[in-house]
């Protein structure tokens, strides 16, 4: 798979700490790449290195197969976690200024801004000062500024913080449509729900080291625990009695006459064998494997290390 960005064995030391210790990431083109990790793991440092805000002490950085250079910055868009705009400046003027700093001509920036402001229905904010807007409104402006120069690589640091559910949903759709448009997105967040929903690939770093990296389905596969959920009608006790010591019943729940049971396979038994035990005793409605949530994997991996 072609990579848009690759970092190899990146080391960044600060005066008293090692922020990144031999961290490698490779971000496939057209993917949404989740950058995960607890607070202080080194995510922001890595993002700043990709943005060339700070330089690494060691390691190689590649953008589109070339060495990462200052001119690539116009092809990268960055939405920092702590969002900031000049409070006293008017919205339109400020957006125009930031777009021009990214290398757009004034005319081009103006026509694109009008388009996006129209799309987000915020054209009448153009002459308002930023301090007059709510936090969510400011986020919208900042989002537009980030994507305006149509970068190939976008970095969103906690993009959903400060958005209400309606606007968060709208933002999610925008992110997905950016992906469809061919952009690659690096997505740093603590919100595991949105990771499962959006990300194709992830990397999990903690204390400056990579703990896991790869395709999200492969990772979840790796952390499977051979647990299945059975939905059935009938007597729960009958189901329990049909199981032998090759299976472990983790939990049961019921809603009216619909019951659910989570069963873990032990001793290399298969789901077919389990089903053959269950079919005679209860009426099976559904049967599926329980995948570990990213939340579980995150906590498990970080605790283990």
């Amino acid at each position: 798979m072609e990579e848009i960005f690759k970092a190899e064995k990146v080391v960044k030391k600060f005066i008293n700490t090692v922020a990144l210790d031999q961290v490698s990431v490779s971000i496939p083109r057209g993917s949404i790449y989740g950058l995960l990790g607890p607070n202080g793991a080194g995510k922001t440092t890595l993002i700043r290195i990709i943005n060339q805000i700070t330089a690494p002490d060691e390691g190689n950085l590649n953008f589109n197969g070339e060495k990462l250079l200052p001119e690539h910055i116009s092809r990268i868009g960055y939405l920092p976690e702590e969002r900031g705009l000049y409070k006293k400046m008017k919205v339109g003027e400020q957006a125009l200024y930031l777009a021009q700093l990214k290398g757009l001509s004034k005319k081009e920036a103006m026509s694109r801004l009008k388009k996006w402001f129209g799309k987000f229905e915020i054209l009448d904010w153009w002459n308002k000062k930023v301090e007059e807007l709510s936090k969510g409104m400011q986020q919208k402006v900042q989002f537009i500024v980030t994507i305006l120069h149509e970068p190939e690589l976008l970095i969103f640091d906690e993009p959903f913080s400060g958005f209400d559910p309606i606007n968060a949903d709208m933002l999610k759709k925008e992110i997905l449509s950016l992906k469809e448009g061919g952009a690659t997105i690096i997505f740093s967040t603590h919100n595991m729900g949105s990771v499962e929903e959006l990300c194709d690939h992830i990397t999990l770093i903690d204390k400056g080291r990579t703990l896991i990296e790869g395709n999200i389905n492969e990772i979840r596969d790796r952390y499977r625990s051979d647990t299945y959920e059975v939905g059935f009608q009938g007597e729960a006790d009958k189901l329990k009695q049909s199981l032998n010591n090759h299976y472990q019943l983790l939990e049961t729940s019921s809603e009216g006459d619909l019951h659910k049971a989570r069963i873990k396979l032990l001793h290399h038994t298969t789901e077919n064998e389990l089903l053959s035990l269950l079919i005679p005793s209860v009426h099976i409605i559904s049967f599926n494997e329980v995948y570990p949530s990213m939340n579980d994997i995150f906590i498990k991996v970080v605790k283990e290390n």
């Binding site: 805000i53 960055y78 000049y86 930031l98 500024v145």
Partner: peptide, 17 residues
Amino acid sequence: IEEKVTRIVEVIISSVK
């Protein structure tokens, strides 16, 4: 200080040195 406090400085120095 204003640029630092509002964090806009990060946006700007991802475009300029």
